[in-house]
Computed example of a mutant assay.
Amino acid sequence: MTTAVTRTALYRLYDIDDRLLYIGIAVDPETRLRVHSREKTWWPMVSQRSIEWFADRPAAEAAERSAIVTEKPVHNVSHSTTRKRGDAIREYRSPYPKPRQVRIATQRWGEFGRVARLGGTSRGKVVAQLIDWYIGEPGAELPVRPQKVQAGEAQDG
């Protein structure tokens, strides 16, 4: 079995004072940074980043390990000599620790977003309201559903 050689990025994230916050690797750093932005409590401190490319993942992993040990980023746990895995768990405070996935047809998802915007809200808020109502959270109500308007029609108002 052969494995494809995939270029891999080593990225560093800094705060406004050039303090190194985090070092990581990814084949697609833009996607990885979007995940960090949703999951990491320290993300709002990030103001700068650098990206260095390596020919393959093993080379990037070696560079990452070395960089974490020598540069001591504030929020890394793996390869850190000063932080433990439990520290990262206690640090995380979001009520939504992991994004959830639901498979919905693309056209229906688009229509859902369009109708949610007509109602002055977002898909995420509507889904959260529906879940709260469905499981019987005290005070939860069904979200208000706007009158459906076909694409291209004018809305009465």
Results as ranks from 00 to 15, higher is better:
Met1Phe: 12
Thr2Gln: 14
Thr2Ala: 14
Thr2Met: 14
Thr6Met: 11
Arg7Gln: 13
Thr8His: 10
Leu10Glu: 09
Leu10Ala: 13
Leu10Val: 13
Tyr11Lys: 11
Leu13Val: 05
Tyr14Gly: 08
Arg19Ser: 08
Tyr22Gly: 10
Tyr22Arg: 09
Gly24Ile: 00
Ala26Asn: 00
Val27Met: 03
Asp28Met: 08
Pro29Met: 01
Thr31Trp: 09
Arg32Ser: 06
Leu33Glu: 11
Leu33Arg: 13
Ser37Thr: 03
Ser37Ile: 02
Arg38Ile: 11
Thr41Arg: 04
Pro44Leu: 05
Met45Arg: 15
Val46Gly: 02
Ser47Asp: 04
Ser47Met: 08
Glu52Phe: 07
Phe54Lys: 04
Ala55Trp: 02
Ala60Ser: 08
Ala60Asn: 05
Ala62Arg: 15
Arg65Asp: 02
Arg65Lys: 15
Ser66Leu: 11
Val69Gly: 03
Thr70Trp: 00
Thr70His: 03
Lys72Ala: 12
Lys72Trp: 03
Val74Glu: 15
His75Phe: 15
Ser80Leu: 09
Gly86Gln: 15
Arg93Glu: 10
Ser94Phe: 10
Ser94Pro: 00
Ser94Ile: 03
Ser94Trp: 09
Pro95Glu: 08
Pro97Trp: 12
Val102Phe: 07
Ile104Leu: 15
Ile104Gln: 08
Ile104Ala: 11
Gln107Lys: 14
Trp109Gly: 06
Gly110Glu: 15
Glu111Thr: 12
Arg114Tyr: 07
Ala116Gln: 03
Arg117Glu: 06
Gly119Arg: 00
Thr121Gln: 05
Arg123Ala: 08
Gly124Leu: 06
Val127Met: 09
Leu130Tyr: 01
Leu130Asn: 04
Ile131Met: 06
Ile131Val: 14
Trp133Pro: 00
Trp133Asp: 02
Tyr134His: 10
Glu137Thr: 15
Val144Leu: 09
Pro146Met: 09
Gln147Val: 13
Lys148His: 12
Lys148Leu: 07
Ala151Lys: 11
Ala154Ser: 07
Asp156Ser: 14
Gly157Pro: 00
